[in-house]
Amino acid sequence: MDGYLGIDVGSVSTNLVVLDENEEVVAKIYRRTQGKPIEAVQAGLTELEDLLTEPVNVLGVGATGSARHLTGVVVGADAVRNEITAHAMAARHAQPDVRTVLEIGGQDSKVIVLQDGIPIDFAMNTVCAAGTGSFLDHQSSRLGIPIEEFGGIAMTAERGSQIAGRCGVFAESDMIHKQQVGHPTNEIVYGLCQALVRNYLNNLAKGKDILAPIVFQGGVAANEGMKRAFEEALEQEVTIPEHFNVMGAIGSALLAKRIMSRTDNTTHFKGFHSADFEYKTSSFGCAACANSCEIIQIAQEDGSEKGDVLARWGGRCDKWDLAPTSITQA
């Protein structure tokens, strides 16, 4: 079978998919990056291959995510594109007339505004946990309810408890208070979903036109309570695509497929077991602001003093993000 590979390596999760010629998902992997993007990609590829029921002849590879340049070199990618491009591509593939993409992952969130399939605006949040999935993760462990059960429980609530949740810390004490005065658990759980939606809409999506059709994706979209909370807050229907948690990988595979099918080029893919990669990891402290982030970087071992820097992470702002390739490449 011919197929296309998409890889999305972010600081938290690493996702891989294989699409067939009809652009359907035939296999997908969602795993933690755990600060080791190269290992995550290599292990992910092995797992992915195990999932395939028949051998796949890879015709093109796309990479995205904050470690996309690194991934591109490690696996031999044909299309290296940023997350906004990849997520928008996947969203419009699932819903061609999509106008708004709401995306919430474990540690980050985004909103993308599209016009006629073209992303014209976006916002991204990697700093404030109160607008990401970790807000719910944290409260779920506080409540002793597994996060996977949150959605089901939230759906049974008639209404949500009003939880003051501009910031995770306040939300927590308020939630405990609501518990003590006897609010039903399901209303508290749904109230937490509403608080996250409120944070997301008031911070990230502030000043953006949230127009229908709306697609909600990212790991947090597994939680039906979140869909309900979004729909109530926006007074609009919200669609969750089938493969909501690997949309970045799908988008990059789609981009690779389109690019490769337009040319006679053969893929740069090094195979599912591309372990022969020499690199050097180093770190330094950033002194540019009071956050004093520890920046980690990976450089290709090419005999030279410094090598080519392929990835950097650890910064709380984008100061050290690598210069994007696709805008300078072509």
Binding site: I84, T85, P119, D121
Partner: peptide, 14 residues
Amino acid sequence: VTRLEAFVDLLTES
């Protein structure tokens, strides 16, 4: 730069 890339990449694709 991110916005420009996304705009241009998908404009090309479309």
